[in-house]
Computed example of a mutant assay.
Amino acid sequence: MTATTGDVWLPFPAAEIDGLPDSFRYRQWDGEDAFPADPADCVFYVTPYMKSPAVTVRPLPKMPALRIVQTLTAGIDHVLGGLADLAPGVRLCNARGVHEASTAELALTLTLASLRGIPRMVRGQDREEWHGGFYEALADRSVLIVGYGSIGAAVEDRLVPFECGRITRVARSARTAPHGPVHALADLPGLLPEADVVVLCTPLTEDTRGLVGADFLGRMKDGALLVNVARGPVVDTPALLTELDSGRLHAALDVTDPEPLPAGHPLWHAPNVLVTPHVGGSSSAFAPRAKRLVARQLTRFAAGEPVENTVLVTG
């Protein structure tokens, strides 16, 4: 996999990244209409961050020399539509290690804010209303993490000090993790009725698209909280709205379907829902970690060493 020449496309200035190999020509492109150079010369493409799939994959058909596609997101669903245009042997790498801390922080923020009634209190402050009383605590609650990869594990690390009653883990297949056993997705029907909080961290795949539908939601216990820091289409929005409108479930959503959530959409004003605008990874922690990952990957690539975080190889 050695590459000692060629162009590298970056979404931020190369001068901002310490430790880049000096054997490449660095081009900055963050989704603008005009390309920074001839895409045919690109060997390593770091995709723009938080741009649409159409923008992200637009240069791919013009990149015959491409060897590595490096996303700056944990998910890779926004790139998959362009892989058919690539030659065999191109490696797609994700940003494992970049977003875990920030996304886990937001998952905890959404959980605590929803349980403790913070949205109601903020609205009450705007109206000079005092909403005292008792609110739900995270302590002693049962939490189910659906999608126990690196982000799911980071969520659990942050849950532990809050003295949850039980933390249950679910991934595509069963295994043993440092904190305990991980159940398979097939076990969900029996696990959902016991959870007070369900945190979605799963990637968007054909297996998880619409996973949280009427049956999934119907198995959740009355009053349970659904927290989504995964991808919007993991949840069937009409089915969720039915449960929210009935008052049976609560939800805290950093991602939605559709997204961005358009004005007038019923999710904005559904009861018992907190919505944030897909900011799980968009924090001060992002840029330093992303730049370290890019420098590390390019150093390995230039030296002919295997790159990290390979999700798939074309062909």
Rank of each mutant, 00 (worst) to 15 (best):
S142D: 14
V122H: 04
S142T: 14
L200V: 06
R58L: 14
P59L: 08
V235M: 09
V155S: 03
A40H: 03
D140M: 03
F162T: 07
G97H: 06
L92Q: 10
H78M: 06
A101C: 01
F12I: 13
V273H: 12
Q28I: 10
S284M: 06
H250W: 09
R25F: 02
G132Y: 05
A15S: 11
L298D: 03
G304A: 04
A65H: 04
F162S: 02
D18H: 06
E100S: 02
G133L: 13
R67K: 15
L60S: 12
L192P: 01
D22V: 04
T5N: 13
T205C: 11
L192D: 04
K291H: 12
A214D: 15
V294E: 02
N309E: 06
V98F: 01
H179T: 14
R169L: 12
F24A: 07
A137G: 06
L204Q: 02
P306F: 10
H131L: 15
E32W: 11
T5M: 07
D222G: 07
G247E: 03
W9A: 15
A177D: 15
S246I: 08
L274P: 01
L138W: 02
T299P: 00
P203A: 12
R169K: 13
D22N: 08
D215K: 07
E243F: 00
G19T: 04
F35M: 14
N309A: 11
R289K: 11
V90R: 03
A214K: 11
R158T: 09
R209D: 13
A195Y: 04
S246P: 01
V155Y: 00
R296T: 13
A239H: 06
T256D: 14
R209V: 08
A107H: 02
R172M: 14
G81C: 13
F301K: 05
G232K: 02
L226P: 01
Y135A: 12
R158H: 08
E128M: 14
V160I: 13
M63N: 03
H278V: 15
F12T: 13
P238H: 07
D257M: 02
P233W: 00
P11F: 10
T299R: 00
A113I: 01
G81V: 09
R25E: 11
L204A: 11
A295V: 05
F35P: 05
P238K: 10
P262E: 08
W9H: 08
G19S: 08
S282Y: 15
V57S: 10
G147Q: 00
V313A: 08
A230C: 07
V170Q: 04
K221M: 07
A3E: 12
Q28D: 04
A3C: 04
V69R: 00
H183G: 05
T276P: 13
P53D: 07
R175M: 06
H99P: 05
S246E: 10
E308Q: 12
I167S: 03
V57F: 09
F162G: 02
P48L: 05
V275Y: 05
G180L: 14
W130H: 07
A295Q: 07
H183N: 13
P271E: 12
L20V: 03
M63D: 08
Y148A: 01
G152S: 08
A224C: 09
P39E: 04
G81R: 07
D257H: 13
P61S: 15
G213I: 01
V197C: 09
Y45M: 04
G213D: 11
R58S: 12
G247K: 12
